[in-house]
Each structure stands twice: as C-alpha cells, then as structure tokens.
C-alpha cells in the first residue's frame, strides 16, 4: 500500500484520503494512518502544485549555474554542496558527472538579484573554482508536463458515441 499511495500522490497531490482509499480499495483510516507515517518519516517531504508562472503576472528569474569546485579531503563534495544548498534562494543542487561538478538551480526576483547572489555568495566560497550562470528564458516542459501547449481547451466534441 505504501508504494501505491506514493505513486498516486506523485501523480496527483490533490488526491484526498477518500480518493486514495477508493482507488486502492482500502479503508480510509488505514490510508490516513499510512500517509501520516510517510509524512513523519519525511518520505513525503511536502505537497506542491506545478505552476506555469509564465501564464501569470508574477515576475521572477530562474538560473542554472554550473559550479566547479575543489573537493575536500574526507568530505568530498558534500560539505561544499551543503554550503550552497543551505541558501534559501537555491531551489536545487545536483552533483553531476562531466565538465563541472555541481548544478545549482536558483530563483531571484531580478537578474541583478541572481547575479549578486553568484558574485557575493557563491563565488566567494573557498572551494569554488569557477561558475557559469545560464538564465532560463522559457520553460517548454517541466516535471513531465508540457507548459507551452497552445491547445489548453478540450477540443473533443462534448458528447460522442
């Protein structure tokens, strides 16, 4: 039941306890208890909506920053990564293979905000050798959903055999 609950919530966080109980053919109280347990164990870390901000008035910028660092003896990349991911502007940090080491996703209100973050906070960390900042201009697809779909409305006939 655990995995099934997680798969359903991953598919749609709006499923209620009673929806999940109906879909899995389980008792509501059992589903509720299991979800509480998953939350307590931090398997479920939170609930969020996938929003296409480009369709709203809200203005902000997203940047992907390639960071090259010198790993530390004993700690490898973990300590440096921590010094970066603790900043609240940072939305995600991945250790990756290839030409650089960390991929940092950051959000700010303006280009300037992001630029200052990089120059003041990121580049000044001792182990950071270099950074390359790429601003996101347009999001075509995110979390498996196409965001630029021109066809928003259901174009099927209202009733068909």
């Amino acid at each position: 039941m655990r995995t099934k609950i997680l798969e359903l919530l991953d598919r749609n966080a709006k499923f209620t306890v009673s929806d999940i109980a109906a879909i899995l053919g389980e008792k509501e109280e059992d589903v509720e208890a299991e979800i509480r347990m998953l939350e307590n164990e931090k398997v479920i870390c939170g609930y969020t909506a996938l929003i296409n901000w480009d369709r709203t008035e809200k203005d902000f910028v997203t940047a992907l920053i390639e960071v090259r660092v010198t790993p530390q003896r004993g700690n490898g990349f973990d300590k440096i990564a921590e010094r970066i991911y603790r900043f609240k502007e940072v939305k995600s940090v991945y250790l990756i293979s290839g030409a650089y080491d960390l991929l940092v996703n950051i959000e700010g209100r303006t280009l300037k905000d992001v630029a200052f973050f990089v120059s003041d906070k990121l580049s000044t960390i001792d182990s950071v050798i270099s950074t390359a900042t790429h601003f996101v201009l347009k999001k075509y697809k995110d979390h498996g959903k196409i965001l630029v779909e021109s066809r928003i409305k259901d174009e099927r006939m209202i009733i068909a055999p």
Binding site: D154, I159, A160, P161
Partner: peptide, 26 residues
C-alpha cells in the same frame, strides 16, 4: 437519428458544460 445527437445539440449550445459524455480517449 442517434439518441446521442439530441443531447449533443443541447449541450453544444451551452457554456461551461462539464462533460462526461465523450467516447474517445483524452
């Protein structure tokens, strides 16, 4: 005529209809 036709005619002239009426995949 297909019995579906009549409903189609009514429904397609209404706004904001929520449909559970189609016979094709979404």
């Amino acid at each position: 005529k297909s019995g579906i036709r009549k409903f189609f005619d009514i429904a397609s002239h209404m706004d904001d209809v929520v449909s559970l009426g189609v016979g094709e995949p979404d």
